[in-house]
């Protein structure tokens, strides 16, 4: 009987260790703790070009993460990208004339949305739209413009 009890305890320890490991992976290693889904309110923004922005990309203001990209759709009337942002509830003082940019983390890194606050006293609520947007910088376009300007310089 003592042997059965010991093996029972060891099985219990094993299962507990396994679940602790899973919990550790979920909370400490993966983004489950930072990606607090469910809580928050939605904002939308239209961009001419979103580059390689992906769902779940961070939304930051002054470098602080306020939320993430919830969904990316295509507006067939204006031919623009319709991006839904999910902002955490505690950041509820974003002015209506805030400017949304698509930035790149590092030269070749992941793209994210950076918000530049405006000066309006009124704040954005759930479902509101950010009017002022700046498209992503596409590397090929930049190089193209650079070459064009160089060519114009040379032409003069």
């Amino acid at each position: 009987m003592a042997r059965i009890r010991l093996s029972e305890i060891l099985v219990g320890v094993f299962m507990a260790l396994g679940f602790v490991a899973l919990f550790f992976l979920a909370m400490r290693v993966s983004n489950l703790s930072t990606a607090a889904t469910g809580e928050g309110y939605n904002l939308t923004a239209k961009f001419d070009n979103i580059g390689s922005l992906r769902v779940r990309a961070p939304v930051t203001m002054a470098g602080v993460r306020l939320g993430r990209v919830e969904a990316i759709d295509f507006d067939q009337e204006t031919f623009q990208a319709l991006v839904t942002l999910r902002i955490e509830d505690r950041y509820d003082q974003i002015p209506t004339d805030t400017f949304a940019n698509i930035f790149t983390a590092g030269l070749l890194g992941e793209q994210y949305i950076g918000l530049d606050p405006g000066g309006s006293p009124e704040v954005l609520g759930d479902g509101d739209r950010i009017e002022f947007t700046q498209s992503a910088l596409v590397l090929e376009q930049m190089i193209g413009q650079f070459l064009l300007s160089k060519a114009e310089e040379g032409g003069e």
Binding site: F14, L17, G18, F19, A21, F24
Partner: peptide
């Protein structure tokens, strides 16, 4: 039952 728990332990200890 054991395999996922063992794999989780392996990954956690590895990290």
């Amino acid at each position: 039952i054991s395999m996922p728990l063992l794999a989780a332990l392996f990954s956690a200890i590895g990290v």
